[in-house]
């Protein structure tokens, strides 16, 4: 069984005001087939965790470890981590002018699998995933994220999740900027990917809204760069009613 394990992770980032510590000892274990929701107020380090796992050069690991089935992810480059089975659905996907979605998907699939996908099955897979995500077929010939609406960008992220079939996916605020219909479609896509491949999910979100569609097994509350409280789905319900005030007061006192 695959395991993504984060242990005592400390991360800092360089700012104009000097080095700023953002993660202060994060412990988290995600097993294959589990859905973990990471919740917390703005600035608590949720996205930093996502980008650090994926290997964004902006974030400096000061201590701790991240392993995928025992493999030290932190010693791998960004692309090596992806090939090891990690996927990050980004909050702000980047435009790549002149590179079509079709070309991009094929290049990524080839990189992940180590060989080009068999054309017929591949085209069928793309068509089916796009249909499920209610994406127009002309989408495939557009340039990656160029002129995409917020909703289209997120669907495109989930399309990649379905096609690249990672072992673990980190979804960074995939729900932000989506209307109810798009949120449902995107959530269905995530659930479908999980049902098909049994991947483990780290679902980073600010709101409980998406958790109505994607049912978490565990909920972790992030405050000041560490997990302040953990629990089952009922914790999300409690946050829905009480907000994050309770944790912020605690941290101020502490």
């Amino acid at each position: 069984m695959s395991v993504l394990s984060i242990h005592d992770l400390h991360v800092s980032v360089e700012t104009d005001q000097g080095t700023k510590r953002i993660l202060n000892g994060v412990d988290l274990t995600v097993n294959e087939g589990e859905i973990h929701a990471i919740m917390g107020p703005n600035g608590s380090g949720k996205s930093t965790l996502a980008y650090t796992i994926a290997g964004h050069p902006k974030y400096h690991v000061e201590g701790g470890s991240v392993t995928l089935d025992g493999v030290d992810l932190l010693s791998l480059s960004v692309d090596e981590r992806a090939r090891a089975g990690l996927f990050l659905a980004m909050q702000y996907p980047v435009e790549i002018p002149g590179v079509t979605v079709t070309n991009f998907l094929r290049t990524a699939k080839t990189a992940i699998d180590g060989e080009a996908p068999a054309i017929r099955g591949w085209i069928k897979d793309i068509r089916e995933s796009m249909k499920n995500l209610r994406m127009d077929s002309t989408f495939a010939e557009r340039n990656v994220n160029e002129g995409f609406s917020g909703g289209e960008k997120k669907r495109h992220e989930i399309l990649q999740l379905e096609l690249l079939k990672p072992k673990f996916a980190v979804l960074d605020e995939t729900d932000s900027g989506l209307d109810v219909d798009a949120l449902k479609i995107v959530s269905e896509g995530v659930n479908r990917a999980k049902a098909n491949t049994g991947l483990g999910l780290l679902l980073i979100t600010h709101y409980t809204r998406i958790l109505r569609y994607i049912k978490p097994d565990f909920v972790h509350v992030f405050v000041d760069g560490r997990v302040a409280e953990e629990g089952g789905p009922e914790l999300a319900d409690r946050l829905e009613n009480e907000g994050y005030d309770r944790f912020l007061n605690q941290s101020n006192v502490g």
């Binding site: 692309d79 992806a82 790549i96 002018p97 002149g98 590179v99 991009f104 990189a111």
Partner: peptide, 27 residues
């Protein structure tokens, strides 16, 4: 950021650079 996005999809840095430059000029 373009490089990071492509690499996060398993594409090597070298290949990612090629893709971006080719895309840029292909317009």
């Amino acid at each position: 950021e373009q490089l990071f996005y492509l690499q996060a999809r398993g594409i090597t840095e070298e290949e990612a650079r090629r893709l971006v430059v080719r895309g840029f000029l292909s317009e």
